[in-house]
């Protein structure tokens, strides 16, 4: 009996220390959480108010959302954004991966790395200028082909947008890939060589598997950057570009300029829910795999 009491006492005191520790740790997180809540979460909830009322302040429930989906402009923007991300993000991961593997062996990597990173530093106006001088009706490409086409106004504009994105963002992923490759112990490749595995199989079974964490980060960064390409697109093609590159950001910006809070907030909600759903799915899958390990 006495022993039991003693044990309880000890556990109690450990728990107490535990809770104290936890509270202290909370202090570390507090500023970040409060700030994020104040500037992101709280006003987001507030904007729900706008999303469910019309321009006169009357409650209309989901009518704004219905209008949103009925709007061809929104549907076009959403579809284009989805297509763009589907094309650009994988490219932005695969191309650096391949280049990284090639570069990894060579020693000239250092300079090339810097060069590939340089587009991140170039201001959007200059980047836009270059792509424009390449693709406008009297640009370099038109000159080579001897025609008079403004490529940004044709269906090729989609490819141009993807090209601009990859050009700008590839460098960062390349650095990620190279660092990730450096983290794979050489012994694995030696073992593969001993086992007689061809280089392709070695690539698939070793490189890819151990690059997954790196590739994940590359994916997240690419995802975030895919929205930022709007800046260059805007400078290249203006407010209402060709229909192949009219994206959600264009739509949202126009709504904001028109102070159309109804459309703006409902669009924000839709985007957030879609992205949020993806993130949550990923997150849960990630956690599960962690526990599985």
């Amino acid at each position: 009996m006495n022993q039991g009491n003693r044990v309880n006492l000890r556990r109690f005191s450990r728990n107490e220390k535990f809770r104290n520790e936890n509270r202290l740790a909370f202090l570390f997180i507090a500023p970040s959480v409060l700030g994020a809540a104040l500037f992101f979460i709280v006003p987001f909830v507030m904007s729900l108010g706008y999303a469910t009322t019309d321009s006169n302040g009357l409650f209309v429930g989901l009518a704004n959302f219905k209008n949103l989906f009925a709007s061809e402009a929104f549907r076009l923007a959403a579809w284009n954004t989805f297509k763009f991300m589907g094309a650009a993000i994988p490219l932005n991961i695969i191309i650096p991966l391949l280049i990284g593997c090639l570069l990894y062996k060579s020693t000239g990597g250092g300079w090339l790395k810097t060069i590939f990173m340089s587009p991140l530093v170039i201001p959007s106006a200059c980047a836009a200028f270059f792509f424009q001088s390449l693709f406008e009706s009297n640009g370099l490409i038109s000159g080579i082909l001897g025609v008079n086409t403004d490529w940004l106004q044709t269906d090729a504009s989609f490819a141009i947008a993807v090209a601009v994105y990859v050009w700008k963002n590839m460098g960062y992923n390349l650095v990620l890939v190279l660092a990730g490759l450096a983290g794979i112990p050489k012994e694995y490749y030696e073992w593969a060589a001993i086992e007689g595995m061809g280089s392709v199989r070695a690539f698939l079974k070793i490189t890819l598997v151990y690059m997954i964490p790196t590739l994940f980060i590359a994916f997240v960064m690419s995802f975030i950057s895919s929205f930022k390409v709007y800046r260059e697109l805007y400078m290249l093609a203006g407010n209402y570009p060709n229909e192949k590159i009219y994206m959600l950001q264009h739509y949202m910006n126009h709504q904001f300029a028109a102070l159309d809070y109804q459309n703006l907030t409902s669009a924000s909600f839709v985007i957030t829910f879609v992205i949020g759903a993806f993130v949550i799915v990923f997150f849960v899958a990630d956690k599960k795999s962690e526990y599985g390990e």
Binding site: E72, A73, L76, Q153, Y240, E243, Y246, A258
Partner: peptide
């Protein structure tokens, strides 16, 4: 034809925003 198509899509987008 291209001009018509481009103009159509631009006007569409603008009107339905």
């Amino acid at each position: 034809e291209q001009a018509a198509k481009n103009l159509q899509s631009r006007l569409n987008t603008y009107l339905t925003e």
